[in-house]
């Protein structure tokens, strides 16, 4: 899974720590999300996309191998 979280975060000038606080998770969670290592719940994916004012499918890109 690839994500555009880092890109969107930079657009809003947010640090990982700030985004984590807004979403209600730990900084490490955002870090692993950005690296595409952590598969978030639908709820978390929705929250992140809400904070970054985008949609889930814009933020998370699934490849054939991930499905």
């Amino acid at each position: 899974m690839k994500t555009k979280i880092k890109e969107f975060r930079a657009r809003y000038n947010l640090t990982q720590e700030e985004l984590a606080k807004k979403v209600g998770v730990r900084r490490e969670t955002i870090s692993f999300l950005e690296k595409g290592k952590y598969n978030p719940s639908l709820k978390l994916a929705y929250k992140v996309s809400q904070v970054l004012e985008t949609t889930i499918d814009e933020l998370f890109i699934f490849e054939e191998d991930d499905l």
Partner: peptide, 11 residues
């Protein structure tokens, strides 16, 4: 974790 979350869905 002052001000931050100690637990979330990942932990």
């Amino acid at each position: 974790y002052k001000g931050g979350h100690t637990q979330d869905e990942w932990t």
